[in-house]
Simulated assay, not measured.
Amino acid sequence: MSIFAQQSLDTIYANDKKNVALFFPTPIRQGITGASNFVFTYNREKEQYFGLIQAKPGIESNLLTITSDGKVYSYILKYSEEPPKLNYFFTKNESIGNESPTKKVPKTENGRTTYFERASEYLLKSRPETIATERKGGIRLRLQEIVYNANEVYLIIEIRNISGIDFEIDYLNVYRTNGNKKRKASYQRLEQEVVYKHKMQYSIRVGQSQRFVYVLPKFVLGDNEKLMLELKELKGSRKVVMETRL
C-alpha cells in the first residue's frame, strides 16, 4: 500500500493598494476564496488566463481555482503591507489534481443571466436611501444602493433629466480611484468590469428618469479608495462624475 502526503501549498501575498495578478496555463473557469477579506476577480463572461487578488487585513485564507481543462490549483492567501511579488505565473505541474469528471463542463451562461435578471428585478422594487448624488447640466446621477451577493456586487443607479434637452448616453463607467486628482502623478483609477446591465436605456427624455442595475464582480475598496461613476453624453459635451467612499 502506498501513502501519498498532500503537497504543501505556496503562499500568495496581497493587499488593498495593489493588484496581484495570477496567470494560469489555461483559462480560469472558477475561483473561490475562503474568507471575505480576500477577493479574486476574473472575467466570467469570456474565459481568460489571468485573475486579480486583493486583500484587506485579516485572517489568512486560501484560493481554490479550477481551469477550463479541469485542473485544480490551490494556494494559501495572506495579507501583506508590501507583497513580495505582483505577478505569479503558474504551470500545469503546479496543479494539485483534476476535477471529476475531467472533461470540460459546459457553460451555463443562460442560467447565470436569468439569476442576475431576477435579482436585479427584486432590487428595483425596493426604495432604498441614496448613497451619493451628483448634478450637472440638468442631469442628476444618483447611486441608490450597493448590494453584495455571492461573487457579485449590484449597483442600483438612477439618472434623471431635468434639462431642456434629451440626453443620449455614450457610456456610464464604474471606476475605483486612489489619490488626489490635483496631484496627477499620484492619482489612479481602475475601470471595473460590468458583467450585466438590467433595464438600462440609452436615451432619457426631458423630465424623465430611469432606474437600473449594474452587476459587477465583487471588489473591495481600500481605505484610501473611492468608487467613481462617470456618465458621458453621446454627441454632446455633458459629463457627470460622481465619487463616494461608501
Rank of each mutant, 00 (worst) to 15 (best):
T41A: 13
Y148N: 09
N178S: 09
L155R: 01
R245I: 13
R142W: 03
R142L: 11
Y154K: 00
F90P: 01
S68T: 11
Y175I: 03
S120Y: 00
E99Q: 12
Y79L: 10
I53M: 14
A119N: 07
V174C: 07
F219G: 04
Q210Y: 06
L231Q: 00
N151I: 02
F90M: 08
E94S: 11
N224F: 07
V20M: 02
G34L: 11
Q30R: 09
Y175T: 03
G70V: 04
Q144H: 01
Q48E: 15
L86R: 13
V39E: 01
G97I: 06
G179E: 06
A119Q: 14
L22G: 01
V105N: 06
R205F: 13
S163Y: 04
E225Y: 03
E121I: 00
I157F: 01
S8W: 11
Y196Q: 08
Q54A: 04
D10E: 13
K235H: 12
T67F: 02
L9K: 15
S74F: 10
E45G: 07
V194D: 05
Q188F: 14
Q30L: 07
K56G: 10
M200L: 15
T91S: 15
F23P: 04
L63D: 00
E117Y: 02
L141R: 00
V241N: 00
E82G: 05
Y49P: 00
L22T: 04
A5R: 15
I76D: 03
K136L: 05
K103P: 00
N37T: 11
Y187C: 07
S61I: 05
N93T: 09
E168C: 08
G207S: 13
T65C: 15
G138Q: 00
S126L: 07
P106Y: 02
L143K: 00
T133S: 12
Y148P: 01
L143D: 00
E225F: 02
R29D: 07
K182C: 04
N15E: 08
H198D: 06
T11Q: 10
G179A: 09
S80W: 08
Q30I: 07
A55P: 05
P84N: 15
R140G: 03
E121N: 11
T133K: 15
N180I: 10
P128S: 06
Q54V: 10
G58H: 12
I139P: 00
E168P: 07
A55H: 04
Y196E: 10
K104H: 03
N161Q: 07
L9M: 15
E225S: 06
Q7S: 14
S209Q: 11
P27V: 11
I159T: 01
I131N: 00
P83T: 04
A185G: 06
P84V: 13
F4Q: 13
N110W: 08
I131P: 01
P106F: 02
K235W: 09
V220R: 10
G179Y: 04
T91L: 13
N15R: 06
N173C: 05
K218M: 05
I59E: 12
Q30V: 06
M242E: 09
F89V: 12
R189D: 12
V72A: 10
I204C: 10
D170M: 07
E47V: 03
I66S: 04
T11E: 11
I162P: 02
K18F: 06
Q30M: 09
A150P: 01
N19L: 12
N43Y: 05
Q208T: 14
A21H: 09
S100C: 09
D69Y: 03
G222E: 05
K226L: 12
